[in-house]
Nucleic acid binder design. Structure first.
Length: 273
DNA sequence: ACCACTACCTGAAGGC
DNA sequence: TGCCTTCAGGTAGTGG
């Protein structure tokens, strides 16, 4: 499931292969993903030189010299990989991008929760305009988080998943961060004290940094069977560890699973209060 | 404004 | 073996 660290890892993997190259051909093998592709996508991007790949939250921003930016979201099953010219497409290979340096980039997405759009003003685009702070950025600190949680009666699990408060966390890293910070997922936002908020800020950053480091490591000589970029095995502490012993020293609790907002929550009822 | 809930989509996994 | 149900998840929309 691509959350911030996975998307950032994809960005780092793609960048050296295609930045500076010109997009020769864009092939759309269906009319839509989650939403229809924009009408003039081909005309806007073909012939344009890619000058940078940026990331905001879980969105990739392919910035071209002609002022157009391709926004891409991987949803939950989207992935990019490079394919040799003679290789044939597989099922769910929906988008194909040929660059003038020989790179043939494929977007693959079985569940099609992903999305793409083209814009000239990414920061004002409806997908990005209302996003909260980047958790690894300078604006995310205890003061910021305290202001976001003030007066909120919603539970912490749901609040951390809300991209308007913090941009880039998904179900896995929310579970992990709350466990590290010893905060119960059912706690209402407004009940957190300053010390807990400060712990949570550190936990969120550490969890993301650790995942990023693990992704970067794996990427160094990344050649999986399918060549997919950006996915890596990362050892989680609570996510999908229902019934196992809590890994906090001296805790002795067992990890439980519950459902909040229709999503699995994993937590330790002993040390997360 | 705030908050809870659901549709979208496919493949994997489990039950019988 | 095979059919059926359930689950996974980010986002956007609905309705209270």
């Amino acid at each position: 499931m691509p959350e911030l660290p996975e998307v950032e890892t994809v960005r780092r993997g793609l960048s050296p292969q295609i930045i500076g190259a010109t997009l020769d051909k864009l092939y759309l093998h269906r009319a839509d993903l989650r939403y229809p592709f924009p009408q003039n996508m081909r005309a806007q991007l073909e012939g344009a030189r890619l000058h940078n790949i940026d990331r905001r939250s879980k969105y990739l921003l392919f910035q071209f010299d002609n002022e157009y930016t391709l926004l891409a979201h991987l949803g939950m099953s989207g992935s990019f990989r490079f394919l040799d010219m003679e290789e044939s497409l597989q099922k769910h290979d929906h988008v194909e991008i040929w660059f003038d340096n020989g790179a043939r980039l494929i977007y693959h997405d079985p569940r099609r929760f992903g999305a793409m759009d083209v814009t000239q003003a990414p920061e004002a685009h409806k997908w990005l305009a209302h996003l909260g702070a980047e958790p690894l950025g300078n604006h995310f600190d205890a003061d910021y988080l305290a202001a976001q949680l003030a007066n909120k009666s919603t539970n912490m699990k749901t609040l951390l998943l809300d991209q308007r408060l913090i941009a880039g966390l998904g179900n896995i890293y929310v579970n992990e961060a709350l466990w590290y910070a010893k905060i119960h997922p059912e706690r209402q936002g407004k009940t957190l004290g300053r010390a807990e908020i400060e712990r949570l800020v550190v936990a969120i950053r550490d969890v993301l940094q650790a995942a990023l480091a693990s992704g970067g490591l794996t990427l160094r000589d990344y050649r999986q069977a399918d060549g997919t970029l950006g996915y890596f095995q990362h050892r989680f502490q609570v996510y999908e560890h229902e019934g196992e012993d809590c890994r906090k020293d001296d805790c002795g609790g067992k990890i439980e699973r519950s459902v909040q907002s229709g999503r699995s929550t994993y937590f330790c009822p002993c040390c997360q209060v």
